[in-house]
Design a protein around this nucleic acid. Sequence first.
DNA 1: GTGAAAGCGCTAACAG
DNA 2: CTGTTAGCGCTTTCAC
Lengths: 335, 335
Amino acid sequence: MATVSRVINDSGPASPDARERVLRAVGELDFVTSASARTVRPDVRSMTWGLLVDDVDSHYFARIVVELDRAAQEHGSTLLVAVTQKAWAREKHLVKEMASRRVDGLIVVPANGDLSGERQRQTGVPRVYLDRFPGGGIAADVVTFDYYRAVADQVEGLWRRGHRRIAFVGGEIETDPGTRRYAAWSDKLYEHGLPVESRLVSVGHGAAATARQAARDLLATEDPPTAIVTTTGLLLLGVLAAVSELGADVEVAASEDISAAFLSPVPLSLVEADIGQLAREAVMLLAARIDGWDEAPQTRILPVGHVRHGYPEKIKPETIKPATTKPATTKEERS
Amino acid sequence: MATVSRVINDSGPASPDARERVLRAVGELDFVTSASARTVRPDVRSMTWGLLVDDVDSHYFARIVVELDRAAQEHGSTLLVAVTQKAWAREKHLVKEMASRRVDGLIVVPANGDLSGERQRQTGVPRVYLDRFPGGGIAADVVTFDYYRAVADQVEGLWRRGHRRIAFVGGEIETDPGTRRYAAWSDKLYEHGLPVESRLVSVGHGAAATARQAARDLLATEDPPTAIVTTTGLLLLGVLAAVSELGADVEVAASEDISAAFLSPVPLSLVEADIGQLAREAVMLLAARIDGWDEAPQTRILPVGHVRHGYPEKIKPETIKPATTKPATTKEERS
DNA sequence: GTGAAAGCGCTAACAG
DNA sequence: CTGTTAGCGCTTTCAC
């Protein structure tokens, strides 16, 4: 038995004859060693990492899976993915499940369902949070993009191009990264003395259909926005559906890239995030933690770029209304 | 020790006192049983299934992951996903890896890299192939959609709407499901006595960019097609990019659904596949195999629906050329 | 260069 | 109801 182990793992001496006999038998029997048995001992690495994703339906998360898989592979580890379906209970369950499988480390896109601090209960497995702050005020390693700056820059751009009524269509703003995006939008408006009116805001959307209805409603008012800032690719599609259906003349900005952006009927500015870099940063951090590195929890906020579609020839200056001369509404009016 | 095991798994008697003490200790220590240790014995089920996907970048595969995850969960198993990156070598490696992790069964979207029959070497793990025939002429359980019929119906529809020059822009046609789609297109054209000219065909595309160029080239000929049949969402985006850039007046059909379909500048007909059903069928089959069911390998070819966008008001009949009166070219002329 | 043996964490079988 | 024990497949240590 010991000889077989030594041959298979190339971990010790074996005579050419023994080696050959072992390898032949392995071939004939299609023998695969049991990772389970090997990792019974708590002191051995399983060379397996776990990734817990929210939901892989979105193109963005799909890319995260692919990039992390590649990064893990480069590191010599296998990545096992499980889907939390945006459910906090399921995330908790899967963390245990992964811990039970003796993964060396865990990369988690937090479900953000329960921020009561419950997340505190860390299992011993090293963990890096991806894309979102885990909430509950817990200190942990986090790698994410600079969504605040991304949205702030977009709003700034819209302002410079003359827009004075800029609406916001977003998802959940009580949890990250919705919080950051919403804050960027409202801070920028406030900074420029623009009214942060509640009728320019529609949030809490989780599907394209409701975002579409929201955009429709926004555009149907008597004083419609000349630009709409939205967040995920999903919501963007909803907004674009409304825009194209009404033939509305607005600019649109969103925080994710979509592959069909070139079909947009209106000027569109999107955020271009280097997901490969996100993955590499997370993997580097995780690998260090697994190796016992125990500095204080790290926060890495990666910069993003912007892409623009349908600029500038499609912009019709006459459709952009001049700035209102009314003073800006007070901060209290924010919804 | 035995009592602890019994309490944790609720698998035998334990006094209220013992139970309470055990549970308290578990809580305090954040104790998680080791799935590795439990599954050292080959006769126990790990209640874990493996899913090997090609590449999760495409929206279509992302949906497969989500649906299978849901189906596995309903069955009481956890799904572990790994990405083969369309590489046959990696698929082989990951099958071993999964087998080593003692998954109860495997759902594989075959990478189709090497059809030399190597795939024959089945490890003992029950396996169901998803979406594509594994190739190499091997007999195995397969669950897939009826891509032949899907494309045949689309071509038939185009014919009925008067199209007589119908091009094909596809991916790899030597392997499934490209083979089936290409065959459907060419069979239908042949059936209607239309020329299956090589200049109406451009295949082998794996990215939107090359499909775009191909569509550009097709549309730039002196006798351009009035309709383009394409396959995946990726290629469709390429084709739509060319169409919208040239302002071409063609109909387009594709075998996948894309969420931005409503933005299409031209009439578009897409295949609508019930991925939930695909997942459920695969899971049902796999569960049966795991339970020892050993009938002959099954092939399930699921029917698909069609969705149409931009019909019928956008169709301008005068742009559709009448049928050529020349006799159809011979079958030999197919490329 | 090889083999015997211990021990990883767990559960099933059995004895008390 | 509880505790002892064997054994799952593997690697490591140690003696030969």
